[in-house]
C-alpha cells in the first residue's frame, strides 16, 4: 500500500526514527570540527570505544529489563560489587582469575535472582525492589573491603584483558562487541526476544497467549545483574584495582543511553542497537568536552542534560507516533 504521508510528515518521522543517530553524527561533526586532529586520531577513537565499553555493557544490562517493561536500579551497585569482588578474590584469597570471575558473577546473578523473585513473584514495585537489592550490594561491598580499594598482584590475564588490544581494537571493546552481538541475536532473532518485547509491550496480552510472563521477567533481572557485574569486572580490569564505588555512576549513564536509544532502530522502544548508539553519544560527548578543554563540571551538565533531553525526546516521539498513526488510520 502506498504511503499517504506528506513530505513534512515523512521528514518528521525520519527525524524521530533516527534522532539518536543524528545526535551522534552532530556531536562527531561538532567536536571533529573544533579539534579535528585530536578528535579523529586513532588513539582517541580507541579511547572513546574503550571508555564506553564497561558502561556500555552495564547499559545493555539495563536494556534487558527495560525491554520486558521493568527497570533495574541496582545495575551500578552490581557493577561496583563484581569489580571489587573479583579483585578481592584474586588479591586477598589468591583465587584464580576464572574462579574469581565465576564467584563475582555468581554473587551478582544471585542478587539479580532475588530482585527478579521480589519483582515478578511478590509483585513488589521494581523501583523499590531493585533499589533495596542495590543497597544490599553496597553492604556486601563494605563488608568485604571496609570501603577500601583492593589492589595487588593479579594474574597476567587481568592486564591483557584490561589494557591489551587485538588489531588495534582494545580487548575491552571486543568484549563489549561480543555482548552486543549475543544480546542482539537473542533479542532480535529468537522467539525469546519476541516474547520479551511482547511482555514489555503488553504483558496482559502476552499472558493471554500463554507466555510465561513472570518467569521471563525474573530471568531478565538475573541476566541484567550478570551483565552489570560483567561490566563492573571490565571496569576494574581497566583500572587495575577493585574500587568500592567505581561502577555506581553507570546507573545514570545507563538510563541516559537506553532512553537515547529509543530514538534509533525501533523508534520509541528499548533495543540493543539503540542502547549502543546511546552509549556512544554519551562517550563521544564526554570525550569531546575533555578534548576542547571544558571543565569537569561540563561532563555532569552534559550527562544530566542528556538524560532529560532523552526522556523528553522519548515522550515527544511517543506522542508523535500516536498522532501519526491516528492520522494514518483516518486516511
Amino acid at each position: 500500500m502506498k504511503s499517504n504521508l506528506t513530505f513534512v510528515e515523512k521528514g518528521t518521522r525520519f527525524l524521530v526514527n533516527y534522532s539518536a543517530l543524528i545526535v551522534l553524527a552532530v556531536l562527531i561533526v561538532v567536536f571533529g570540527t573544533l579539534s579535528p586532529s585530536a578528535f579523529f586520531s586513532l588513539n582517541n577513537l580507541q579511547n572513546i570505544f574503550v571508555q564506553a565499553s564497561p558502561g556500555g555493557v552495564v547499559a545493555l544490562a539495563l536494556t534487558i529489563t527495560m525491554i520486558v517493561g521493568e527497570f533495574d536500579l541496582s545495575v551500578g551497585y552490581m557493577a561496583s560489587l563484581a569489580g571489587l569482588l573479583v579483585f578481592g578474590f584474586m588479591v586477598n584469597h589468591h583465587d584464580s582469575f576464572i574462579l574469581s570471575v565465576f564467584y563475582s558473577l555468581g554473587a551478582t546473578s544471585l542478587l539479580g535472582l532475588i530482585s527478579g523473585l521480589i519483582v515478578s513473584r511478590l509483585k513488589v514495585n521494581a523501583f523499590i525492589g531493585t533499589l533495596g537489592i542495590g543497597f544490599v550490594a553496597v553492604g556486601i561491598v563494605y563488608s568485604f573491603s571496609n570501603g577500601a580499594l583492593i589492589t595487588g598482584k593479579t594474574p597476567h590475564i587481568v592486564d591483557t584483558l584490561g589494557l591489551g588490544s587485538i588489531i588495534k581494537i582494545q580487548n575491552l571493546t571486543l568484549l563489549w562487541i561480543c555482548c552486543i552481538a549475543i544480546l542482539w541475536v537473542v533479542t532480535e532473532r529468537t522467539p525469546l526476544g519476541v516474547h520479551m518485547r511482547a511482555i514489555g509491550g503488553q504483558a496482559r496480552a502476552a499472558e493471554l497467549v500463554g507466555l510465561p510472563v513472570a518467569k521471563i521477567r525474573m530471568w531478565a533481572f538475573v541476566c541484567s545483574a550478570f551483565l552489570a557485574g560483567f561490566g563492573g569486572i571490565m571496569l576494574s580490569m581497566r583500572l587495575g584495582s577493585g574500587q568500592p564505588n567505581a561502577g555506581n555512576g553507570y546507573l545514570l549513564d545507563g538510563f541516559s543511553a537506553t532512553f537515547l536509544g529509543r530514538g534509533f532502530y525501533r523508534a520509541g522502544e528499548f533495543s540493543v542497537p539503540g542502547t549502543v548508539v546511546g552509549a556512544l553519544i554519551l562517550q563521544v560527548g564526554y570525550n569531546g568536552l575533555a578534548i576542547i578543554g571544558m571543565p569537569t563540571a561540563a561532563k555532569y551538565y552534559f550527562s544530566g542534560g542528556t538524560l532529560v533531553v532523552a526522556l523528553a525526546l522519548g515522550t515527544i516521539a511517543g506522542s508523535y507516533h500516536f498522532k501519526l498513526n491516528d492520522r494514518k488510520r483516518k486516511k
Binding site: 519476541v194 518485547r197 511482547a198 514489555g200 509491550g201 503488553q202 496482559r204 496480552a205 502476552a206 493471554l208 522502544e269
Partner: peptide, 8 residues
Amino acid sequence: ELAVVGEL
C-alpha cells in the same frame, strides 16, 4: 481487548 501486542 488485548488481542494483539501493538509493539510487535
